[in-house]
Design a protein around this nucleic acid. Structure first.
Length: 302
DNA sequence: AGCCAGGCAGAGA
DNA sequence: TCTCTGCATGGC
């Protein structure tokens, strides 16, 4: 619920090599918006504003009591050390520019349902379009989230039970087309308790992937996105059209490898932090192609 | 105007 | 197992 009065909580987060723009606007999450010099979004049901700092961190603001801020620091993965990841990844010449330029990018620890639903809606859609459909889904079926008047209104991501209770036409009205029955079918399976998204992170990556791929509209790529962006499996390596192209350029010059070949290669080549390599390459390739606005960037890269 | 987008599922070889 | 196709919608 928007309101014009009320107090604000502020926390200075001290962290090096953290770039909010490349983290929040690299196609992992679809709800963050750049407004008046800060990134605004909803994390664990709370409205949050994040303002870039002087290079040694950033500033976080909420309008409800944030407690110890642990929920936000966990979501943003501020505990992750990019230097350790850089040492773990292979020193391939073709990979190095992406690793160096995207050092400040973190993999978020998102809520599984929002992540899964968003990526079901992502298939053969451009990121700008995914953002629009997800926004429409929240506007129609989410609940009000308290925020400053000048930032609102803001809605939560609809709970799985809410989506499960809708009809296919309600979802199609959001502009998601043929993905509507996939989202509805998955929502109903999750809401019924047949699949427990919260427990996926406690299982092996292979088990969690199999569970996700049993859901309608979820294949290998979308399953890997959920493993990587919400379950903490940093070795997961989603292969989409961008990654297919960029890995083709670097590792398969002169031919066009099949997706299955690239998936198998990535699985054995990049190691325990392969997912970071994947996101570095994805963001780097999209930035190179001029598909990232990069607001608030310092001009020095990602 | 036409090609393509952070794919998936089903059919046929 | 691999390849091909239909699927809604809209950006560039």
């Amino acid at each position: 619920m928007s309101r014009g009065v009320g107090r604000t909580w502020v926390r200075a987060v001290r962290v090096v090599d953290y770039d909010l723009g490349s983290t929040l606007d690299s196609g992992q999450a679809f709800r963050w918006e750049w407004r008046r010099g800060g990134w605004e979004g909803v994390v664990r049901g709370r409205w949050v504003r994040l303002e870039p700092g002087d290079g040694a961190g950033f500033r976080a603001c909420t309008v409800v009591d944030p407690g110890d801020w642990g929920w936000l620091l966990d979501y943003l993965a501020v505990d992750v050390d990019p230097a350790e990841i850089g040492r773990s990844l292979p020193g391939d010449p073709g990979l190095m520019p992406a690793v160096e330029e995207c050092r400040g990018l973190r993999l978020l620890r998102q809520e599984p349902w929002e992540c899964l639903a968003s990526f079901i809606l992502s298939s053969t859609k451009q990121i700008v379009q995914i953002r629009r459909v997800v926004g429409e889904l929240c506007r129609r079926f989410g609940g009000p989230v308290e925020c400053p008047a000048e930032s609102g209104p803001v809605w939560s991501f609809p709970p799985v039970e809410r989506i499960a209770g809708l009809e296919e036409r309600d979802l199609r009205a959001c502009g998601m087309g043929f993905r509507a029955p996939y989202l509805l079918g998955t929502a109903r399976r999750v809401a019924s308790g047949q699949v427990d998204l919260e427990r996926l992170r406690k299982r092996t990556m292979g088990e969690a992937r199999g569970e996700l791929m049993s859901l309608p509209g979820v294949g290998r790529k979308i399953a890997d996105c959920v493993l990587l962006f919400s379950c903490g499996f940093d070795a997961a390596f989603p292969v989409d059209v961008w990654i297919l192209r960029v890995l083709g350029e670097i590792y398969f010059p002169g031919r066009r490898p099949a997706t299955s070949e690239v998936v198998a290669f990535a699985e054995s080549h990049f190691g325990p932090f392969g997912g970071y390599a994947q996101q570095y390459l994805f963001h780097w390739a999209r930035r190179r192609a001029g598909r990232v606005a990069n607001p608030g960037g310092d001009g020095a890269g990602c």
